[in-house]
């Protein structure tokens, strides 16, 4: 158990590293350079932002709900950190038990609800609109998200994230569950609030959405929570669909290395999608997720059932 504080520190370092990779990658796709002068190749840029925000003045607006306004940014990073403890990102999970897939899904839902509370508590009209949008888009993507995560659980015959990851030694579940993986990726874009679905903090429409009123260390914690959520979703996609720690030359190379590389690749795919899309309207997201994503997720489960009946895949 001596390695748990190190693992928590690793999550935070990795979250900042992924923010730098994301900014550099998007900048290169847009024919820019992104941050390059802060540290080696700009890798310390998220740290500079974080330290600067921690040192800035912390304003509490008179119109805000004081308790919610102070509590929400403190509570927000906890959910992705606990979620990362469930995933076997360092070879084995810190807390793994049967049924932690449901807990992970619960943590993602509570994260979005906390965003709503943060926007509502700030007492700003833009903040309230942003929070309401976060809650509204959750109504759209959450059901197909849950259905897409059921597929790997059925294939592995367990509800434990790490057991699902360990059971992919023969085949990655993204291959038999390609449709479910696609639905999962689309919904995860909405979960981490990146561009096609960054409706809760649409910069051109509602100042900065739910985080409009947050300044100083509250904003620093909110940015940390967003980066950690990105890592959490990428790690979950790796564990459920992309074979977890398995990869070529796995016995000499430890599984944690493969897991981290795959997590990084999923994060780069997400930032690629962030660069090439424009923002959807809130009504389009909710409508499409009920019209297309949900039927596709159900079709995926039916196809899986058909595979079992035809004997293509043995029963778990």
């Amino acid at each position: 158990m001596w390695w748990i504080p190190g693992a928590l520190a690793f999550f935070i370092v990795f979250a900042f590293f992924i923010e730098w990779v994301d900014r550099r990658f998007v900048a290169r796709l847009q024919d820019r350079y992104g941050p390059i002068y802060t540290g080696t190749g700009g890798v310390l840029q998220p740290w500079a932002d974080f330290i600067k925000l921690l040192s800035k003045e912390d304003i509490t607006p008179a119109a805000s709900d004081k308790v919610l306004f102070r509590l929400a940014p403190l509570v927000l990073p906890i959910f992705p950190i606990v979620g990362l403890c469930l995933t076997p990102i360092l070879g084995k999970p810190i807390i793994g038990f049967d049924g932690d897939l449901i807990v992970a899904f619960f943590l993602m839902s509570v994260y979005t609800i906390m965003i709503f509370i943060a926007g509502y508590g700030s007492g700003n009209s833009f903040g309230i609109v942003g929070g309401t949008r976060a809650a509204l888009q959750m109504l759209g993507y959450e059901v197909p998200f849950a259905l897409a995560m059921i597929g790997p659980a059925i294939l592995a015959g367990t509800l434990s994230i790490s057991e699902i990851a360990y059971s992919q030694s023969n085949i990655w579940y993204a291959i038999p569950l390609a449709l479910g993986f696609a639905v999962f990726m689309v919904c995860s874009l909405a979960e981490v609030d990146v561009v096609p679905f960054d409706i809760p903090h649409a910069k051109q429409e509602i100042v900065a959405g739910w985080e409009t009123e947050y300044s100083g260390r509250k904003l620093a914690l909110i940015h940390l929570a967003e980066n950690l959520e990105m890592v959490f979703i990428s790690a979950l996609a790796t564990a459920l669909f992309l074979g977890g720690g398995y990869g070529p030359f796995s016995p000499p190379i430890p599984p944690a290395v493969w897991f981290i590389i795959k997590t990084l690749i999923v994060a780069i795919v997400i930032s690629n999608l962030r660069a090439i899309f424009a923002r959807f309207k809130i009504i389009t997201l909710v409508e499409w997720s009920w019209k297309y994503l949900l039927p596709l997720a159900i079709v995926q489960l039916l196809v899986l059932e058909l595979f079992f009946e035809l004997g293509v895949i043995p029963w778990p």
């Binding site: 350079y33 992104g34 941050p35 390059i36 932002d49």
Partner: peptide
């Protein structure tokens, strides 16, 4: 062309 984000 100018990309001020290079300097953070």
């Amino acid at each position: 062309r100018f990309d001020a984000e290079r300097f953070g």
